[in-house]
Measured scan of single mutants.
Amino acid sequence: KEEVSSHTSPETGIWVTLGSEVFDVTEFVDLHPGGPSKLMLAAGGPLEPFWALYAVHNQSHVRELLAQYKIGEL
């Protein structure tokens, strides 16, 4: 988790977690339908608090999209 928390910018890579999985979403930030700034709120940390607020994320196609960016496990 400490390593994930240091990845919060395009220069270091933008990493997020979901459960025990780690994702590098650097290439996706500008494609995020809610805008880059919304995704950047989660940079370096867990997606769960944000996904709890926005139910649109609880769809299979969203998880499939995220899976493409998986880089490891906590």
Rank of each mutant, 00 (worst) to 15 (best):
L74I: 14
G72E: 08
R63E: 09
I14Y: 02
L65S: 08
N58R: 12
L31S: 08
L53G: 13
Q68K: 14
T17E: 10
H32W: 08
L39A: 07
S6W: 12
Y54G: 11
F50C: 03
S6V: 15
H32M: 00
H7G: 12
P49V: 05
N58I: 05
T17R: 00
H7A: 02
T8S: 13
H61M: 05
H7F: 08
T17K: 04
L47S: 05
I71F: 06
L66S: 02
P49F: 09
G35C: 02
K1D: 09
H57M: 02
E48G: 04
S60L: 13
A42T: 04
I14N: 03
G45I: 06
F23A: 02
L53K: 15
H57F: 00
H61Y: 10
H57G: 09
F28S: 00
M40G: 00
D30Q: 07
A42E: 00
N58C: 09
E27N: 12
S6P: 10
L18V: 07
E3L: 14
L18Y: 14
I14R: 01
I71S: 08
N58G: 06
S37V: 07
D30E: 12
V16P: 01
T12G: 15
W15M: 10
W15A: 02
E2W: 09
T26L: 02
N58D: 11
A55V: 08
E2I: 14
H32F: 01
I71D: 01
T12E: 13
L74Q: 08
E64I: 04
W15L: 10
G19W: 03
A43D: 09
L47R: 02
L39R: 05
P49L: 06
L31T: 04
W51D: 09
I71E: 01
N58V: 06
F23C: 04
S20T: 14
W15S: 07
P33C: 02
V16R: 04
L18W: 11
R63H: 13
E3F: 15
L74S: 09
H57T: 03
V25I: 12
P10V: 11
P36I: 04
L66H: 06
G19N: 07
P36G: 15
L41D: 11
D24T: 01
T17V: 04
E64V: 08
P49D: 08
T12H: 12
P36Y: 09
E27R: 11
G35T: 03
A42I: 00
H7S: 07
A55E: 15
G72M: 05
E11V: 10
V22H: 02
H7W: 01
A43F: 13
A43V: 11
Q68R: 13
E73T: 13
P49R: 07
P33M: 02
G19S: 08
M40E: 03
K38F: 11
S6M: 15
L18T: 06
R63W: 08
M40C: 15
G34L: 00
H32C: 01
T8N: 14
A42R: 04
K38L: 09
S20E: 13
W51P: 06
V29E: 03
E73I: 08
E48Y: 03
I71K: 07
S20K: 10
S5I: 14
V62D: 05
P36S: 09
V25D: 01
Y54V: 02
L65P: 01
A55H: 14
P49I: 04
S37T: 15
E2S: 13
H7C: 03
T17G: 05
E11G: 14
A67N: 15
G44D: 05
L66D: 04
T26G: 07
V4R: 09
I14E: 02
A67R: 13
A42K: 02
P36F: 06
S37K: 14
E73S: 12
P33W: 01
A67L: 11
A67M: 15
V25G: 04
V25H: 00
F23I: 05
S6G: 15
E3P: 08
G72W: 08
D30A: 09
L65Y: 06
P36T: 09
T26E: 02
D30T: 09
S37P: 08
A52S: 14
G34V: 00
P49Y: 09
E27H: 07
F28M: 03
T26Q: 03
S20C: 11
T12D: 13
I14V: 10
E27G: 12
L18Q: 12
W15Y: 14
E11D: 13
S20P: 10
F23N: 00
H57N: 02
G13D: 07
F28V: 04
K1H: 09
L47D: 05
E2R: 10
S37L: 08
V56H: 13
L47E: 00
A55I: 01
G44N: 03
R63G: 06
A42Y: 00
E73F: 10
L74R: 14
H7D: 04
E27I: 01
V56N: 07
V4E: 07
A52M: 09
W15I: 13
E11L: 07
V29S: 05
V22Y: 07
K1Q: 02
G72D: 07
T17S: 14
F50Q: 08
G19L: 05
A42G: 02
E48S: 00
V62A: 03
E11C: 11
G72S: 09
A52P: 07
E2P: 08
T8E: 11
P36D: 07
L47K: 00
H57V: 05
P33V: 01
G35V: 02
L18A: 08
G72Q: 06
E27D: 13
L18R: 14
E48K: 11
T12S: 13
L41K: 12
A42L: 09
G45Y: 04
L47G: 10
Q59N: 11
G13Q: 07
L65I: 14
L65A: 10
A52W: 02
E3G: 12
W51A: 01
D24Y: 01
S6H: 15
T26A: 08
G34H: 05
L74N: 08
S20I: 14
F28W: 07
V62I: 05
P36L: 07
Q59M: 06
E27K: 13
G72C: 13
H57W: 02
V62N: 00
Q68D: 09
T12A: 14
P10S: 11
P49N: 11
R63M: 11
A55M: 06
S60G: 12
S6D: 15
G44S: 06
E73D: 14
L41P: 01
Y69G: 07
E73P: 07
R63Q: 12
S9R: 14
G35P: 06
S5N: 14
P49H: 11
S6T: 15
T8K: 15
V29H: 00
L53C: 13
T26C: 03
Y69K: 07
K1A: 00
E73L: 08
W15T: 04
T8Q: 13
S37H: 13
F28L: 01
K70P: 03
F50R: 05
E48C: 05
G13R: 11
H57K: 00
K70Y: 11
V16Y: 06
F28T: 00
L66N: 05
R63P: 03
S9K: 14
T12K: 13
I14K: 06
A55W: 04
Y54R: 07
E27S: 11
V62H: 00
G44E: 05
Q68C: 11
L53Y: 11
L53N: 14
G19R: 09
S37D: 15
V16T: 13
V62F: 04
G34E: 02
Y54I: 02
S20N: 15
F50T: 11
V29W: 05
E3H: 10
Q59P: 05
G35D: 05
D30R: 05
W15V: 10
L74A: 12
S37E: 13
A43M: 07
L39Q: 03
K38T: 08
V16Q: 01
Y54A: 03
A42F: 01
V4S: 07
G45M: 13
L74Y: 15
E2T: 14
G35I: 07
N58M: 10
K70H: 04
R63Y: 09
E11P: 06
G19Q: 07
G35E: 02
L39M: 09
L74W: 15
Q59H: 09
S6I: 15
G45R: 13
P10W: 12
A55R: 12
H7Q: 03
L41Y: 04
S5T: 14
L41S: 10
A52N: 15
I71G: 09
L65T: 14
A55Y: 01
V29A: 07
G45F: 10
F50I: 03
L53R: 15
L53A: 14
T26S: 12
G19C: 06
Q68G: 11
I71M: 11
L31V: 14
W15G: 01
E27L: 11
V25P: 05
E64N: 06
V22M: 12
S6L: 15
Q68A: 10
S6A: 15
G35Y: 00
T17C: 15
V25S: 06
V16S: 03
V56P: 04
A52K: 11
V29D: 03
L53T: 15
W15Q: 08
L39Y: 01
V16I: 08
A67V: 10
Y69E: 06
K1S: 03
T17M: 13
E11M: 09
E2N: 05
L47M: 01
P33F: 02
F23M: 05
G34C: 01
S5L: 14
V4G: 03
P36C: 08
D30P: 15
G72P: 09
S9N: 13
L65M: 11
F50H: 15
L53E: 15
F50L: 12
R63K: 13
Y54H: 13
E48A: 11
E2L: 14
S60W: 09
P10I: 10
T17W: 15
H61K: 10
D24Q: 00
L18K: 15
A52V: 03
L53V: 14
D30K: 09
Q68S: 12
Y69S: 11
E2A: 12
